Computed example of a mutant assay.
Amino acid sequence: MEQQLEEIRDQQKASWDKFSPGWKKWDELMMDFLKPMGDEIIQLLQPKATDVVLDIAAGTGEPGLSIATKVTNGKVIITDLSEDMLAIARENAMLRGITNIETQACDVCELPFADNTFDAISCRFGFMFFPDMLLAAKEMARVLKPGGRIATAVWNGPEKNFWVTATMGTINRNMELPPPPPGAPGMFRCAQDGLITDLFQQAGLKNIKQTEVTGKLNSKTTDEYWNVMTEVAAPIVAALSKADEAMKAKIKKEVYEAVNQRYPDGNVQIDSSALVIYGEK
């Protein structure tokens, strides 16, 4: 792997390790938020009882743990760059009495598995952050059995994801942040219609289809929304760390105004939209 891509990967590993306490704290809320996308992935993969499934970039364990409850005579290998996130996944498995999982910290661009190993692969909100997305897609295809199924979720455009833009948009209006290089990892990197479909085709997958799935971040209050975003969203925390106290206060005030204007009744359930892409080997 090129040195630049290795550096991106190492930065991401450090970032996810750092934010694992926030993800653990807000796990119930975030897993509820992301559940519709995981449900769609599972619906498309149709896991069979004896399947061996790979869940990539699984973080605290979903949708791999839910898949494990369906492959009762099979198993799920849950992977992530961050060992700290996988520790939470193992804890979640233990709490739910799920025993047919293994966890492995690894890089999607260098999967430590033999060719034709898995019946199905899930990857919920990983592609946007992979340094080399085509290499990642090819690696997934390599370890998938002939006839195997793969499904991934990526975020749709910013105009359909106020849960991100309410805060990031306010930060960008107030701070002179350097724009990321074209194609750099980021939330909306895969929002372009057909981008993942094209990657799947280049990786040799077939019967590819794409669907839109919506969800809601049910934070209930603006306070809780702000706390979640400043404890689990790495780009937001990184940007705010460069602001002085006066600027942080201004940004927080404007975010609150934007959210309260959108949800005047105080019931903060923020819409989201993702694209789920399916393919077969």
Rank of each mutant, 00 (worst) to 15 (best):
16 W>F: 14
191 A>Y: 04
245 E>C: 10
178 P>A: 02
86 L>K: 15
103 T>S: 13
237 V>W: 02
69 T>C: 09
108 V>F: 04
67 I>A: 11
266 G>H: 08
60 T>L: 10
70 K>R: 15
47 P>T: 03
1 M>K: 08
61 G>L: 09
254 E>Y: 06
244 D>C: 11
7 E>F: 10
40 E>A: 13
4 Q>W: 10
281 K>C: 09
186 G>W: 03
136 A>R: 01
51 D>K: 08
202 Q>N: 10
25 K>D: 03
213 V>W: 04
224 E>G: 05
238 A>D: 14
235 P>K: 04
132 D>W: 03
256 Y>T: 12
165 T>H: 02
92 N>V: 11
104 Q>T: 12
216 K>S: 02
81 L>T: 10
64 G>H: 11
117 T>M: 09
241 S>R: 07
245 E>N: 15
252 K>G: 05
151 A>R: 01
81 L>V: 09
37 M>L: 03
5 L>D: 05
274 A>Q: 02
15 S>Y: 03
197 T>D: 07
72 T>D: 14
42 I>F: 06
88 I>S: 15
243 A>R: 07
210 Q>C: 08
103 T>H: 13
57 A>C: 14
63 P>T: 10
105 A>S: 14
237 V>C: 07
107 D>L: 10
217 L>I: 04
216 K>R: 11
221 T>V: 07
179 P>M: 00
37 M>I: 04
70 K>D: 00
248 K>H: 07
269 Q>G: 03
223 D>K: 11
231 E>G: 13
257 E>T: 15
26 W>P: 03
10 D>H: 15
20 S>V: 09
213 V>D: 02
142 R>T: 09
139 E>C: 12
